[in-house]
Design a protein around this nucleic acid. Structure first.
Lengths: 195, 195
DNA sequence: GACTATTTATACCGTTCGGTACAAACCGCA
DNA sequence: TGCGGTTTGTACCGAACGGTATAAATAGTC
């Protein structure tokens, strides 16, 4: 049994994520991917099959590596308000680190849902739905512990927070200045902690 | 001086808007445009110059025909809270009319800002900025008339509303069900009318 | 009817698209 | 050392890309 692999599939996928993240599916050419992944064309097709399969894999891996693990961590925090705050704080950090922010790969893709395959639609919907569920769970937990007013309805507020995440992420792609993003985060927290 | 025009430039631009709106710049081919505009290739290049020039023109016209005129109308309303409410109500209407919603052409383009030309960046930033300004003016007016609590800061709240518009518009492209969009609108209004 | 400019249809340009083919170099294990 | 799958480079495929050229048809003004 000879030599089974040389380059790491996950590492290569991570590089593909960067390319798709910035340029989107349509805007990315195979030449872009070969450049970014530093892999030969033959190896790419041998390992991933097609551009679409690579995109699906990249999108899924991005979601698991970032959103899923982070939300799972935060879910174990004792203070749900602090957990929600930490989530938004991270969005601000990402938006302000480096010269240009890429926003969120999932949300970028969500914008293009009408032109995406059913597989991609499922991945995006599931990711957004789990994020909303995280917010809802945190708010409900805040009700129980008394940290969040019962006037703050769990589900509607969770949906509003989702929309502010989406807005913040999209606007962080060069549409507004950083101070606006901070305002958005503050208002989001006000939705949770008000009266 | 003979025959100056046959087809209407603005009408043709309106049809181009529909195509770009749905598919984005990269996702739209000249064949798509010729199909959608029902115009010959020669006429298209003679009238508009290039794909990029047509896109710029379409984006600008869309912004003026929809956002700009609507906001100008609402600005003359007596009740600023009602004006903000009407703005969000219209987003819900658009999201629920027809089989699939396209969201907002400007916001779709904003998502792709890092890959757009400086001209497009300017159009998008100006449009979003004017929308934020509309919200800020309405809130300030609400302060004066006593309809909005002084605790609701004009600028930060306007920025939060902007982000909820963005979130609502993006999510209306098939990412969530309509009831979620209604929740988002309700929470946005709560930001304005709270305490 | 002559003039002028647009519209239309079609053919064509070079380039890039996603994807394939293949031989040579490579590597780990037997 | 030889076998077997991997990687690499390159050449190539048909199709689609944005854009141009052109000639005949068309329509309004003089």
């Amino acid at each position: 049994m000879p030599w089974e692999k040389t380059f790491d599939l996950d590492e290569a996928t991570d590089k593909a994520i960067q390319v798709f993240w910035k340029k989107g599916y349509e805007g990315t050419s195979m030449a872009d991917l070969i450049d970014g992944m530093q892999i030969n064309k033959g190896s790419l097709y041998n390992a991933f099959g097609s551009k679409q399969e690579l995109f699906d894999r990249a999108l899924l891996r991005y979601d698991q590596k970032t959103r899923a693990t982070f939300v799972a961590d935060l879910s174990q925090w004792e203070d749900p308000v602090a957990a929600i705050n930490a989530f938004f704080e991270r969005l601000l950090d990402e938006a302000q680190s480096g010269p240009e922010s890429l926003g969120c790969f999932i949300i970028n893709t969500a914008q293009d849902l009408p032109n995406q395959t059913p597989e991609v639609v499922n991945i995006v919907r599931a990711s957004l739905s789990e994020l909303e569920e995280f917010f809802e769970t945190m708010i409900a937990r805040g009700h129980d512990s008394g940290r969040i007013s019962a006037d703050v309805q769990a589900r509607p507020t969770a949906q509003a927070l989702l929309s502010m995440v989406v807005g913040l992420r999209l606007l962080s792609r060069g549409a507004v200045d950083p101070s606006t993003l901070t305002s958005i985060k503050d208002s989001a927290m006000r939705l949770v902690t008000s009266s």
